[in-house]
Design a protein around this nucleic acid. Structure first.
Lengths: 180, 180
DNA sequence: CCGATACGTCAACCAGACTGCCGTAACTGC
DNA sequence: GCAGTTACGGCAGTCTGGTTGACGTATCGG
């Protein structure tokens, strides 16, 4: 049944959006996210950390030298919520805070060696799942996935992702993006 | 930059999975899920309900007559956690419990008229986002999205989704699936 | 110099998850 | 027909991770 519908729509660009299709999309998001996040839980439990810590580690790792306010905007949580999580990560030596050179009010966040190591362990768990899914689906599906996911998120999130990617490739070419 | 990579890989089935691609997938999942769930929050806040209530409403609506244990397995929460949420929904007249005919230990869950109405309001908010994303991406991308998302989730979740879809089309043809 | 900003912090609260334990009703297999 | 298992509900207590509001300090910028 699934394949009938899939085959019918896969070739054309015409969209017949039945309510069922949208409800199925809700299911997809719920289950994929549930099991994606769950993949790292074993390691987190070992260390007595939670998903909130993982999210912080992830985005600090991806944006070394990120100021607190920017991280807050990404996570969409309050200063207090982040403070607890960040406090634990700093205390346990996973995250380092360095005063900004340009704006000295800022406390720029980055992973320590230990933080990078931990983040990598967590990453590997999720990587397995994602790689498997990507390989099974194939490159064109992956591109479709990317397009739809970008469409679901807020414009601001799309802009952030583009900006961040830009920064990373700039960095690659030796240009400093976020003065550590 | 994004388009260079996209153009390079969109045509072929060859996958060059850089670490950056996988990390970008993590970002995609985080942001898409964050904004997808957020879409219904306004309405939930009005009614003093939370996301937990929404999830329950969604899956009860999609599986009328679902027994408690099955709902627990889908949500991956404990009896106690569900009890509180379900208690509120029953008390406020959104969900009805009816003893199972075949197995009278079961309390089969279904949305009341009010529950259906509420679920629909919540659904509409998320629907807007999903429809927009689907339309912008186009049918082939949607199919790719579906394939990747299915790949990310557990085998059990895939099986559930297939089973549920099967049930729904059976129902359409007049066969009783879950004796209310 | 003064207002806005970046950040930290205290206190209190709340949602939503968890555990362990107990109880009742009903199904099921021998 | 009884014994063991299952489906469900409920109590008590705990934990994570989110919230608000208020306040303080350092720094930036016009």
């Amino acid at each position: 049944m699934a394949d009938t519908k899939a085959a019918a729509s896969a070739g054309s660009n015409l969209l017949f959006l039945r309510e069922e299709d949208i409800r199925a999309a809700q299911d997809l998001l719920f289950f994929a996210y549930r099991d994606f996040t769950n993949a790292a839980d074993v390691i987190l439990d070992e260390l007595g950390l939670g998903r909130a810590h993982h999210r912080a580690l992830h985005f600090i790792g991806r944006n070394p030298g990120i100021p607190v306010t920017e991280l807050l905007a990404i996570l969409r949580i309050t200063k207090q919520s982040l403070a607890r999580v960040l406090g634990a990560l700093v205390e346990q030596g996973y995250v380092a805070q360095t005063p900004g050179q340009i704006d000295r009010r800022q406390r720029l966040l980055a992973l320590t060696q230990a933080g990078q190591a931990l983040e990598r362990r967590l990453f590997e768990r999720q990587r397995e799942r994602l790689v498997a899914a990507y390989r099974d689906a194939g490159a064109p599906s992956v591109e479709g996935f990317r397009r739809v996911m970008r469409g679901i998120m807020d414009e601001a999130a799309r802009a952030y992702m583009d900006g961040a990617e830009q920064s990373r490739s700039d960095q690659q070419r030796g240009r400093a993006v976020r003065p550590a």
